[in-house]
């Protein structure tokens, strides 16, 4: 780990100021991924600005009176607190489930909501500095493209990068149409949709998202949800816990009798960002909530997948996981 200057920030604005003043500085929040990558020499900041201790970790209802209008997750809330917050468990159970599907109890006690979105890929070629990786070292090539790519993307990849985003939480957030709140040195608040926030690798896989240096995530906004009664987070992995997803699916249904009046499906483990299964959603809207319709929609979604040598199974597994998540959302709820 490269030596670095450590600063304990006193306020969020002062942290942002400090951050903006040094292009080689990084914010330290949960640290569960940053420190891991610093030990591997993948991340090499020369300054860390510690905001861990700042009191910015609330889960707030945005409702005024009877009108449901969503929830704000402060960026420094711990994943475990968010997952267990009564508002989240009752109104966004799919989010609780997704968070609890990720990592371990210890890591969820450390990792923050904002940091969760900023997790970097778990691609082993990215992690091993002896390997080529365009995300880590632009221009060095993609080791995974012709390599061991079992865990890699089947949607939205480029020949520069086929990595996947590792978060479970972000998959549920994508399904819930969450927005990312970011603040910069000038004090400007931006509200980014997940589409605006996350990127596909394209020609610049070194950028995971569209934040600029000096931007700090201050919160995540959840719009009012109509999916609390019928939602589910399904995760398929190589062992039963404490493993990254082969494929995961966050699904929510809003029903009018048997008819699907609204639906959300997002996938993890398949792309450089949480993947909204828009094809499937479109097919299902207005249809009857049946297993056959779920399967057809899943098949249509995965038809566009482009797998690699070792992850062809993700097409069938993706179909199954979408159908399973929808069926469980229908039958059990979260």
């Amino acid at each position: 780990m490269r030596p670095f200057k450590y600063t304990r920030a006193t306020t969020l604005p002062s942290a942002i100021k400090e951050l903006s003043g040094n292009a080689q500085s990084r914010i330290l929040a949960g640290g569960t991924n940053l420190l891991d990558l610093m030990k591997e020499d993948v991340e090499r900041p020369e300054a860390l600005i510690d905001i861990t201790h700042l009191p910015h970790s609330a889960v707030k209802s945005l409702s005024q009176g009877a009108a449901k209008s969503g929830v704000l997750l402060d960026a420094l809330g711990k994943n475990s607190e968010t997952a267990n917050h009564l508002l989240i468990r009752s109104q966004y159970p799919m989010l609780s489930q997704a968070i609890l599907a990720g990592a371990s109890a210890q890591i969820r006690n450390m990792a923050t909501n904002g940091g969760n979105l900023l997790q970097r890929t778990r691609c082993p070629y990215f992690y091993d500095v002896a390997m080529p990786c365009n995300k880590r070292t632009p221009g060095s090539g993609c080791g995974a493209l012709e390599g061991f790519n079992r865990m890699h993307a089947v949607f939205g990849w480029s020949d520069k990068c086929i990595a996947v985003h590792p978060s479970d939480m972000a998959v549920a957030l994508a399904a819930l149409d969450a927005k990312v709140l970011a603040q910069n040195e000038a004090g400007q608040q931006r509200r980014l949709t997940f589409d605006e926030f996350f990127r596909l690798p394209g020609d610049a896989p070194e950028k995971d998202n569209n934040l600029q240096h000096g931007d700090l995530i201050t919160g995540i906004e959840l719009p009012a949800s109509n999916f609390a009664d019928h939602s589910y987070y399904a995760k398929v992995r190589d062992r039963s816990s404490y493993a990254f997803a082969l494929v995961s699916v966050a699904a929510g249904l809003q029903l009018n009798g048997k008819q699907i009046s609204d639906v959300r499906v997002a996938m993890g483990g398949v792309a450089h960002k949480p993947w909204r299964a828009l094809t499937a959603e479109k097919m299902l809207k207005g249809k009857e909530a049946t297993e056959a319709n779920f399967k057809a929609a899943a098949k249509a979604e995965m038809a566009a997948a482009k797998p690699h040598e070792y992850n062809k199974f993700k097409i069938e597994l993706g179909e199954r996981a979408i159908a399973l998540a929808l069926t469980n959302a229908l039958n059990y709820g979260s």
Binding site: D50, H53, M110
Partner: peptide
Amino acid sequence: RVLSCLTLAAT
């Protein structure tokens, strides 16, 4: 419960 290997002492 947390992981002391991913916790900087400074924090």
